[in-house]
Amino acid sequence: MLENEVEIKNSAELLKTVEGLKNDGYRYATMICLKANDGHDLIYIFDKDYKLKNLRYFVKPGEKPKSVSGIYLCALLIENEYQDLFGLTFEGLAIDYKGHLYLTPNSPKAPLA
């Protein structure tokens, strides 16, 4: 458990919270993906005045999480990275590399982290 962490239940709540954080002047730092209970844990990290705020969101197996790149454009690279490395599919990505940001059709396949 990280400091200053908030649990998010569903994707609608996620988008709403992220939108709210942007209006509060938070900066998008990064997102972390972990394998957990057959699914994946996504930890969104935001920064304001050197203080971090973390949102934890559990992605059920087979679920397609919503992309936040519509709110923070800079989220697109990290979300594309997890499409490559974890085989996730983010819905509504600003630029979708379709799992070929780093990998070629010949490379090893996900999961790679």
Binding site: A29, T30, I32, C33, L34, L73, C74, L76, L77, I78, A113
Partner: peptide, 18 residues
């Protein structure tokens, strides 16, 4: 178990799009 690194250039590349 897990190590994740967000490097500065990773954050700066999207600014090139703008």
């Amino acid at each position: 178990e897990r190590l994740k690194i967000r490097t500065p250039t990773f954050a700066n590349i999207p600014s090139l799009l703008l």
